[in-house]
Structure formats: structure tokens, C-alpha cells
């Protein structure tokens, strides 16, 4: 072969492969698939090229769930002023949630809680996505800024440790490993022990009664303000015994704890 023959032969062969494969891929194959409902040649080429189409949001079903959209850095930084305002506003919360955010009843402990987690629940109480006879009335008069302030205030307070790292007793199997084939990941993969998913609460120090009650409510869908059913899906698959084990473990209260099987 001559020297200049190489160049034209290589370019020609490459071009032929490209053109033939493009004709097959962009025209013949799409047109051979009637379910695509293509309107013609140009539509075939566009769909095969991946020109973006948006599905019509036709389904506008009535929503009873949360309307909050979580963002990665929400409430990530708080100024002292906001925390101070939150401290003042939090006086009204102290009756149930404790003067330092540490509850001595079956209401949640808030000290050191992730700010976005508190904020989301306040929003949901306000919109009615989450309902509680005692809590709901308190939220009615809170402004957007009030909710932010309260959230960052409680987040600022020192956190009760999760027994995960501080106690000798092993976490029950359902907490440490979940139950993979039931679609239950380790609790800590969202709730902060292993990693944290924005909006998920820190569980350490919650009272066993509150913890158990919420999981049961999720399981029965009486509580349904979790985004995309993420917690209901898991709670439904947990057995009552597992719910008890997790509740006792995170509360730090005594109870029959199953050791982690090796």
C-alpha cells in the first residue's frame, strides 16, 4: 500500500463504520420499535440521540405527606443571634422537651439534634403533614424564621451520646446490621452513627416509649410525613421485638438486649 493510501483508507474505513452504525442506531433500530410511538424520521433520530423529554406531571394526586424539600447544606451554619432567638423561643418548649432539651417524658429529646431534622418536623407540624394533639397547637404561630431559630438552638446544645460508641453493650442485630433481605439497612447509615442523611434525626437518648411509638406509627402509616415513605417502608418490615430492641438500645434504658451474633 502506498503511503498516502494509509491515510485515506483509515479515515474512510472509520467514517464508514461510524456512518453505518449511526444509520442503524439512529434510524433503523428506533423505527423497528413501535412502542416508542415515533412520529417520523426526525423524531427517531432525536430520540436515539437522547434529546431530553420531560414526562408530563399528569398525576396530581392529593398529597397528605410532607412538602419540605431537603437540601444538603440547609441550616449548616447558624449565627449567634439566631441561636439566641431560638433560646428565647424555646422557653415554650421546655415543659415537654426539658429545660436543656433533654426530655424526661415520652416527648423527644432535642439537645444536639441535627438542625434540619428539627426544622423539618416543625414544618410538617405546621402544614399538618404530621399531627400531634399536644405539639400541633404550639407550631401554629411560629414563623419561618422562628422554626429556623429553634432548630439551630437545639442543635447547638450538647448531644446525648448514642450508646453505639459509648457503652460496652453491643448493639442489637437490627440496629447494627439491619436485615438486608427485608430491605432494612443499619440504622446508623442514615441516623448519624455511620453516616448521616439530611433530615434524619439523631436517635441517641430518645425515650424508649417515644421511639417505639413513632416506629409503630410509621408502620401503621398513622405517621406519614417521611419523604418518599423512607421510614414507613422500613418500620413496616420490622418485627415488634426488633422495634423494642432498637427502642431500648437507643434510649439507653435497661432491657433484654440480644447480643450481636458472630
Amino acid at each position: 500500500m502506498k503511503r498516502d493510501g494509509w491515510t485515506s483508507a483509515s479515515i474512510g474505513a472509520t467514517a464508514i463504520v461510524f456512518v453505518v452504525s449511526a444509520v442503524v442506531g439512529f434510524i433503523l433500530l428506533p423505527l423497528a420499535q413501535p412502542h416508542l410511538g415515533l412520529t417520523g424520521l426526525w423524531d427517531a433520530i432525536c430520540s436515539a440521540a437522547g434529546v431530553v423529554s420531560r414526562p408530563s406531571p399528569a398525576v396530581e394526586a392529593p398529597q397528605k405527606g410532607t412538602t419540605v424539600v431537603m437540601t444538603p447544606n440547609m441550616l449548616a451554619s447558624a449565627d449567634a443571634q439566631s441561636i439566641g432567638r431560638g433560646a428565647t423561643l424555646a422557653h415554650q418548649c421546655a415543659i415537654c422537651h426539658g429545660p436543656a432539651g433533654i426530655s424526661r417524658a415520652d416527648s423527644p429529646t432535642l439537645s444536639g439534634q441535627f438542625a434540619p431534622a428539627i426544622y423539618k418536623q416543625l414544618k410538617d407540624f405546621k402544614t399538618g403533614a404530621r399531627v400531634n394533639a399536644v405539639m400541633s397547637p404550639f407550631v401554629v404561630n411560629l414563623s419561618e424564621q422562628d422554626m429556623v431559630d429553634i432548630s439551630v438552638y437545639y442543635a447547638y446544645l450538647p448531644r446525648l451520646p448514642s450508646p453505639w460508641r459509648t457503652q460496652d453493650r453491643p448493639a442489637p442485630k437490627i440496629v447494627a446490621s439491619g436485615a438486608p433481605l427485608r430491605g432494612i439497612a443499619p440504622c446508623g447509615s442514615c441516623h448519624g452513627d455511620l453516616d448521616h442523611k439530611v433530615g434524619s434525626p439523631w436517635l441517641g437518648g430518645q425515650s424508649a416509649g417515644y421511639f417505639r411509638g413513632q416506629l409503630r406509627n410509621f408502620a401503621s402509616a398513622d405517621r406519614h410525613n417521611d419523604i418518599n415513605e423512607q421510614m414507613r417502608t422500613i418500620a413496616r418490615r420490622m418485627t415488634p421485638e426488633e422495634i423494642d430492641e432498637a427502642a431500648l438500645y437507643y434510649s439507653g434504658e435497661a432491657g433484654p438486649i440480644q447480643p450481636l451474633p458472630r
Partner: peptide, 27 residues
Amino acid sequence: HATMPQGRVETIDAARLHLSGEFVESN
């Protein structure tokens, strides 16, 4: 007509799936 990759590229607002559109909870 054997298995083929999906024919169209469709986009959707991932953070707001639960608010509207075909992937709301009830759908």
C-alpha cells in the same frame, strides 16, 4: 425486538419527586 436500551431520555426533578409528578407516593 429483543431487549433494547430505553428509547428516550427523560428528566425529572429529583428533590421534588414527593411533591408532584408521576412518582408521588400515591402513584
